[in-house]
Amino acid sequence: MSTLLAFDFGEARIGVAVGTTELGIPHPLETIAAEGNDKRFARIGELVAQWQPGALVVGLPLSPDGGEHEMTRLARKFANRLNGRFNLPVHLVDERFTSAAASSALDEAGLKGRRQKPALDQVAAMQILQAWFDSPAE
């Protein structure tokens, strides 16, 4: 059994989710909204120390047709930094439509509009981790 931390990378916020390979059920953890990479990576370091993950999962934003763009490049850079700082395997997962799925899930839970903002990124990270669990290649 291995614990995984998943990240929905954004320039303003990073959503974080956690789950185990044994259960294959992700849970939203938190949204990191700290300004500056040093503060963001310090918080991620605290989460890595607390949860002791065997691997990390990062959502890879792609255009609807699967093409790459600037946020794809930034997410890859973030994933490389995670690997370099924490010396853990980092898996990239196609995150197309995860924010829409997260918003829909929050709608169903009764959180609509602006009330979704505090939870949206971590629920998107949960969707990313679920996609990793569901991937037959993994």
Rank of each mutant, 00 (worst) to 15 (best):
1 M>R: 10
2 S>G: 04
2 S>L: 09
2 S>M: 07
2 S>H: 07
3 T>A: 12
3 T>E: 05
6 A>D: 00
7 F>A: 03
9 F>C: 06
10 G>R: 00
10 G>N: 02
10 G>P: 05
11 E>F: 08
11 E>P: 01
12 A>C: 09
13 R>C: 07
16 V>F: 04
18 V>A: 13
18 V>G: 03
19 G>N: 03
20 T>W: 02
21 T>I: 07
21 T>H: 08
22 E>T: 13
22 E>S: 08
23 L>V: 12
23 L>D: 10
24 G>D: 02
25 I>R: 12
25 I>F: 12
26 P>N: 01
26 P>F: 02
29 L>Q: 10
31 T>M: 06
31 T>F: 10
35 E>F: 06
36 G>A: 04
39 K>E: 10
39 K>D: 13
40 R>P: 10
43 R>S: 06
44 I>W: 06
44 I>T: 06
47 L>R: 02
54 G>W: 00
55 A>T: 02
57 V>F: 09
59 G>N: 05
61 P>F: 01
62 L>G: 08
69 H>D: 12
69 H>P: 02
70 E>M: 10
71 M>D: 11
73 R>P: 01
73 R>A: 15
74 L>Y: 10
77 K>P: 02
78 F>P: 01
81 R>G: 06
81 R>H: 12
82 L>V: 13
84 G>W: 08
86 F>N: 05
88 L>H: 04
88 L>Q: 08
90 V>T: 00
91 H>G: 00
91 H>F: 14
92 L>R: 06
93 V>H: 02
93 V>S: 09
97 F>V: 03
98 T>P: 00
99 S>P: 02
100 A>H: 14
104 S>H: 15
106 L>G: 10
107 D>M: 13
109 A>V: 08
114 R>T: 11
114 R>A: 15
118 P>E: 09
118 P>M: 11
119 A>L: 15
119 A>W: 14
120 L>H: 05
120 L>S: 06
124 A>D: 02
124 A>F: 04
126 M>V: 07
127 Q>S: 09
127 Q>Y: 06
129 L>R: 03
129 L>I: 04
130 Q>Y: 04
131 A>L: 11
132 W>R: 11
136 P>T: 13
137 A>Q: 15
